[in-house]
């Protein structure tokens, strides 16, 4: 297993956090992992993004030109990253924020209304957990239980009040991921 995942959206959508959560989870499962914030050949421009590489083997480059997975939180990021995903890769798209649907036909595409669902649950900021849940259905990089465990640990006592809503969002993401069959 070796996946290069880019998480991209606006600042405030929890893009960096969810990338780190995946990285912490991968570490908890003793996998090799790197996390880098908006650095790389195609970065910058108002959006927040991070690249996570998860692998069974020691990781060489933490940067990549063609990620195997892109988790896209907003329209500008779709415009920027859709073309870069490696053929046969996975594109997880927050449909609540899209102006145009993705056009690539050589990718697995999962569309889900993450922002709408998050505000339904009670906090738009948990759309990141919804996106992560859905992604893990299509790329089982780490165990769901480990994600939950690590999330609780990372929120700690100071942010314990955010536990329930984040876990709910994660569950919803998983359900949405399951019902949203990837269109290829």
């Amino acid at each position: 297993m070796h996946e290069e995942i880019i998480f991209a959206g606006f600042g405030g959508q929890g893009v960096m956090f969810v990338g780190q959560l995946l990285a912490y989870t991968a570490l908890a499962e003793e996998k090799h992992v790197t996390w880098i914030p908006s650095y790389g050949p195609e970065m910058r421009g108002g959006t927040a993004n991070c690249t996570v590489v998860v692998s069974d083997e020691p990781i060489g480059s933490p940067v990549c030109k063609h990620p195997s997975v892109a988790v896209i939180f907003n329209n500008p990021s779709l415009e920027k990253y859709e073309a870069m995903v490696t053929p046969g890769g996975l594109l997880v798209v927050n449909s609540s924020m899209m102006v145009h649907p993705p056009t690539r036909t050589d990718l697995e595409v999962v569309m889900l209304p993450a922002t709408a669902t998050a505000s339904e649950i009670g906090d738009v900021r948990v759309s990141n957990m919804i996106m992560l849940g859905a992604m893990l259905i299509h790329r089982a990089l780490v165990d769901r239980a480990t994600v939950e465990h690590v999330l609780i640990e990372k929120l700690g006592t100071r942010k314990a009040h955010l536990q329930a809503i984040n876990l709910t969002a994660f569950e919803r993401g998983i359900t949405l991921g399951q019902t949203q069959q990837a269109s290829v």
Binding site: Q20, A23, L27, H32, V33, T34, W35, I36, P37, Y39, I59, P62, V63
Partner: peptide
């Protein structure tokens, strides 16, 4: 370089 400075890994 800035990449190593900002990168997280185990």
């Amino acid at each position: 370089d800035g990449l190593l400075g900002q990168m997280m890994e185990p």
